[in-house]
Nucleic acid binder design. Structure first.
Lengths: 219, 219
DNA sequence: AGCAGAGAACTGGACGGTCCAGTTCTGCAA
DNA sequence: TTGCAGAACTGGACCGTCCAGTTCTCTGCT
């Protein structure tokens, strides 16, 4: 069921081998996300990708290698989506609205069943695969906050924000808008992922607090 | 190694049966935290608790039941530690310092290898044991924020804070001080748990932002 | 262009070795 | 006799390998 969806990142190559490889990656992604690392067995991946086990092991040397490949690809891919096409604040644009839109964009990408499940999976395997968790951290929160720090630095130089340490400000902004929905979805499951309207309200409240602390004293 | 530590919550009862039961619980806690649910096997628990497998199954009907017992106990226990003896703000005490102390107290308890590992464990098993994750959410963040909301409500009525929605304010405070270190420790492992001094700096920065948004306009 | 053949890739199934949850048996000791 | 330790056992799952036979793909020749 659904084994023909070629949703994987690199869409290059369409030889038989490349096609099978993608089928394996897609199937493995689904099974690993559903059942976890230990809960997944290679026979199921082979069956779901409509490929023999031999072929699976021709493309990936072991269960562990396949797992690492998938998780690494997903984290990098998801991070890219968030950080492409970040517009600067226009000359006469509203700062508050600009920040809310940025927040919403990030929330919409991260609060997805797939990404949430990836997060849970990686966190549950921190002990077994510490390197994978480190990559998720750097491609996820760390990357987002580094980017934000740059934006805030610029806004501060334009006199629109009053910022002492851009890193800390970025962290505060990031978690003001992300933590509540992220933590809920993390522990309460995908059913607890808020609606778009709730996410907007959450973002607006977070931005309000952020601007109260870091906004230019509009006097 | 360390199997004689009887650190479990309920210390009542010292009959032979009760002692063995605690030994099993302690051993199981250690093994589950170290190896995860699927990665744990009952033989190891029996060996570590110096008890026969038969005795293990006399006290707990299955691996699943034992797991639920342990995780449930740990979450409730940890929550209790944070929320005992919460002092009110004295008549002429500094609000900022009061909030920083509250934050530090909570950070110190939560950012412990054991608690962090418990969090990772439960998150990794959200799909298999959704009920357990829900309990962790309610005994952890939800409980802390409900408590905070009450405190803030009181402070607002005393004119020390300007608060619209105490729930949202509590969430903002909670995550301003917890998110950065919690997320780091979560993904980067126990070595990334910040020092007490760093935690204090983090708490002070968070409280500063919180008071800028919710503090009484001291003008 | 059309075709033949070589070599790579794949299938389907079986299988060895290992691991594990939960049960049962044996023997010892109070 | 009762209760537990220790060990063996059952039934099943699973990783990785292997092999015989089939299909695909590409190259070079006519």
């Amino acid at each position: 069921m659904g084994s023909e969806a070629s949703e994987n990142t690199d869409a290059e190559g369409d030889g038989r081998s490349a096609r099978k490889r993608r089928a394996i990656l897609d199937a493995a992604t689904e099974v690993f996300l559903r059942s976890g690392y230990l809960g997944t067995n290679m026979d199921e991946i082979a069956a779901l990708s409509a490929v023999s086990k031999q072929t699976v092991y021709k493309h990936f040397s072991s269960k562990e290698a396949l797992f690492i490949e998938i998780v690494g690809g997903m984290t990098t891919g998801a991070g890219d989506i968030v950080h492409n096409d970040v517009a600067e604040l226009g000359r006469d644009e509203d700062l508050s609205a600009y920040l809310v839109e940025y927040a919403l964009r990030q929330l919409t990408v991260v609060l997805t069943p797939r990404i949430m499940q990836l997060r849970r999976l990686v966190i549950g395997e921190v002990t077994r695969f510490p390197e994978l968790a480190r990559v998720l951290y750097e491609r996820g929160p760390a990357r987002a906050m580094a980017m934000l720090a740059g934006v805030f630095q610029g806004l501060a130089e334009r006199g629109l924000l009053t910022i002492d340490d851009p890193q800390i400000a970025a962290s505060h902004f990031n978690w003001l808008i992300m933590s509540e929905p992220l933590n809920q979805a993390m522990l309460l499951g995908d059913d607890a992922i808020p609606s778009q309207a709730d996410l907007r309200r959450n973002a607006e409240a977070g931005v309000r607090v952020f601007l109260a602390a870091y906004g230019r004293p509009a006097r």
